Simulated assay, not measured.
Amino acid sequence: AYAKVGGIPFSAIVLVVIFALAGLWLQRTRTGRSIYFVGGDREAARLNGLPVDRIVVLAYALSGLCAGIAAIFLTARTGVGDPRIGAA
C-alpha cells in the first residue's frame, strides 16, 4: 500500500537523507555553525558581529519547512488533510 524502495518505506529514506544533509550543513557551513552559536549564547553571538535576528528567523523558517515536509508525508500516508489529526 505504501511506496517502498528495497523493502524500506520511501518516507524513511527521505527522513534519513534530510537528517544527513542537515547535519552536514550545520557542521560544515558558516550559516550552520552560526545557528549553533546563536543557540548557545545570543549575546556572545551579537558581540561577535553575527546578525542574531536574521539567524533566528532563518532557524524558525527552516523549522517551518521541516514541519511542512512532515505534513506532506502525513497527508500522503493517511490520505486525509484533517487539522485535528494530532489532537489528544
Rank of each mutant, 00 (worst) to 15 (best):
F37P: 05
D41Q: 11
R54C: 08
L47Y: 14
I35P: 07
R42Y: 14
A61R: 00
D82A: 15
W25C: 09
G32Y: 05
A67F: 11
G49A: 14
T31Q: 12
L74T: 12
R54D: 10
I13T: 10
A44F: 14
P51K: 15
G32E: 06
V14R: 04
V57P: 01
I69L: 02
G39W: 08
V56T: 04
G79Y: 06
A70R: 00
G49D: 14
G81I: 07
R28L: 02
L50C: 09
T78C: 09
G39N: 08
A70D: 00
V17N: 03
A59L: 03
I69P: 00
I18N: 04
L21G: 01
L62C: 05
L50R: 06
S63H: 07
A22P: 07
N48R: 12
P83W: 07
R77E: 13
G32T: 03
V14T: 09
L21C: 03
F73R: 02
L21H: 01
S63E: 07
I18G: 03
A20W: 01
G40R: 07
G40A: 11
V52C: 15
L47P: 06
R28Y: 04
L47M: 14
L15D: 10
L50D: 08
R30W: 11
G39P: 05
L58S: 03
L21K: 00
E43R: 10
S63P: 07
T78D: 11
G81N: 11
G64N: 01
F73P: 02
A45Q: 12
V52G: 15
S34P: 09
L74A: 12
V38C: 10
I85H: 07
